[in-house]
Every structure is written in structure tokens, then in C-alpha cells.
Simulated scan of single mutants.
Amino acid sequence: MIWSEITVHTTAEAVEAVSNILHEAGANGVVIEDPEVLHREWDTPFGEIYQLSPDDFPTEGVYVKAYLPVTSYLGETVEEIKTQLNQLLLHGLDLGKGTITLTEVREDEWASAWKKYYKPVSVSERITITPVWEDYQPKRADEIVIEMDPGMAFGTGTHPTTVLCIRALEKYIQSGDRVYDVGTGTGILSIAAAKLGASEILALDLDEVAVRSAQTNIKVNKESGKITVKQNNLLDNMEGPVELVVANILAEVIIRFTDDIARVLVEGGLLIASGIIMAREADVKQALVRSNLEVVETSYIDDWVAIIAKKR
């Protein structure tokens, strides 16, 4: 099958918003090419990402690539994407160059080519993420291995915001905790919570593709007994109570539902929030305080922030 690869040259700040637009346009896949990974230092002596070439990345900004089947109405779809990108500018989001380019690719070539970039990575003291096609063997007795099949639509679990959330889960989760994973995507944070001792996890996402992706990965990791996946908008109609909410989504979205987070948490319950750029850190913290959530820790990787807050 022939696909059209649509590349948007944008900024790290706009990656999530641009990705959402591409998904809404019907894209069956998204790839994020951020030159930051070329310079990232991994705190592990094994399992590094390798075979990365600077020639595959922009010298500045980020490439967000989506895949649409070549059809008679592809032109109209691209014009709609351009319109939606312009709307982001009106809301003050920095798109950088904001250019769009199209290239035709064959599905079999694309599906095999990108896998060379995805290798086992140790993302915390105990957790290693590995693609399902790698024959990875644990290096330590207490090592937790999460197998991921990101498919064509979602990330590999090694993005800084995901790593920040996993490290926070490892530090704060208690055996028997009930968890809401808001914007679950591939389900990786739900899987991590289950393997770290949570007793009951509800993984929520508005995107049908995300729901299917999460269900697949949860089954691969044999955690279906603990995790339920549901298509849902944020915490709408969720009653709780739960001991922990994890949300790896845009700062603008977190700000919008801090009251709901406080509502579903038990007294002393925790929020782990990421997907936040440093420029929005103060805004998110202010919203949390207004909702009676006390910030107890802030952690960083590059320009990304994770905030841990407790219900007073």
C-alpha cells in the first residue's frame, strides 16, 4: 500500500498539539524526530538507543511525521491540517517554521525501517522498556521489563515526559494503590503502575486508536487482570476514590481539570503530571494550588517537567 508521509517542521512545545491534529485528520501513524535524542545521556551501561544519524533529524526544531493513505481527497485533508495548524498560532503556540512537506512511502519499507531506532532502554532504577521484537533478558533479579508494541500511532515510552512519570511512579506508588491513568496512549504508565504494585488501574483515553493500542500492550505484559482500558474524556464521570492519578498530557489540558483530579483523589492522594514544558510550569502549579493540591516535588529532563502534588 502507498502512504503519504506528511512532515510538519515545528517546535518541541508544539509536538503534542500537532500530533493531535494529525491524528484527527485520520493519520495511521506518527513519528517524532527530535534532535534532542542525539545528545541525551542515558543513565545505564546497557540498552542505549543507537544507530542514530544526525542526517535523519532537523538541525533545529522537531519533525512530526504522519502517514495517510494516498486517496483522491488527500489534498483536501492536507489543507484542513494547514488550517488547524494556523489555529494553533492564533492561540499563541509557537510552531517554529511550521512547514509541511509530503513524500510517498511504501508501508512495508516504513514498517521495517523505523524499528532500527528502537532498542531496550533502562528508564529508571528498576524498569527497562523493550520492543516486543527484541529478545531482551533482564540484567538484575529485581528488574522490571515492560514490552511495548507502539504500532504506527504512538511513542516508544522513552520520551522524557514518560520517563519522568515512570520514575515518579517507582518512587511514590504504594502496594495496593488504585490508579487513574489519564491519556494513557500506549498504556505504558498503567503497565508500570501494575508491575510496581498497584492493585487496580483504570486507563483512560479519548482516542479509539489509543484504547486499542493500550489493550494490546497490556495483554502482551500480562496485566489485563489489574488494568481496565476505557474510552473517556479526561476524568468525566469518574467518581474515584483513588490513591493516585497519573497524567502525561499537555499543560493546557492539566490546567483544565485540576478540580476533577482533586475530586477523585483520597485525602493525601497523589497526582503525577507531566507533558509540561518549563514555560508552563508556573501556570500548572498555580492551577494545582487553586484546586487544593500541594506541590511536593518537581523533576526535570531537559525542557520537560514532571510535577508531583498531594491532595491536602
Rank of each mutant, 00 (worst) to 15 (best):
A214S: 15
A210P: 12
G185F: 02
D181E: 05
V211K: 09
P160N: 06
V245F: 12
G151N: 02
V182D: 11
A203Q: 00
P241C: 06
G197C: 08
L265A: 07
M152D: 07
N217R: 02
T228K: 14
G225K: 14
G225S: 14
V182Q: 09
N233L: 13
T258S: 13
A194N: 01
L235S: 11
A194Q: 00
S213H: 15
G268T: 09
D177L: 03
F154H: 12
R280G: 03
I254K: 04
T156K: 13
T158P: 01
I201D: 03
G185W: 06
E223P: 04
V145D: 02
D236Y: 15
I227A: 01
A192P: 00
A153F: 09
D205N: 07
A192N: 01
R263D: 14
A193I: 06
A247C: 06
A247E: 04
P241G: 08
I201Y: 04
D207T: 14
L164Y: 11
R167Q: 15
L189G: 03
A153E: 15
N237K: 08
G269Y: 09
I166A: 04
N232Y: 11
L234M: 13
G155A: 05
L196W: 04
I144R: 01
L196C: 08
Q174Y: 08
Y172G: 08
A153D: 09
Y172K: 14
S224C: 04
L204P: 07
V253C: 04
S213V: 12
V246F: 05
K195L: 11
Y180T: 08
R256E: 15
R263L: 08
K222M: 15
A203S: 02
I173Q: 02
D149R: 07
M152H: 08
N217W: 05
L235R: 12
K219T: 10
T186H: 05
L202P: 05
M238A: 13
I277Y: 06
M278S: 12
A203G: 00
R256L: 13
G176V: 02
I188N: 00
I255K: 08
Q231I: 10
T216V: 15
G187Y: 00
K195G: 01
L250E: 14
K171T: 06
V245M: 09
T162R: 10
D181G: 04
L270R: 05
K226I: 14
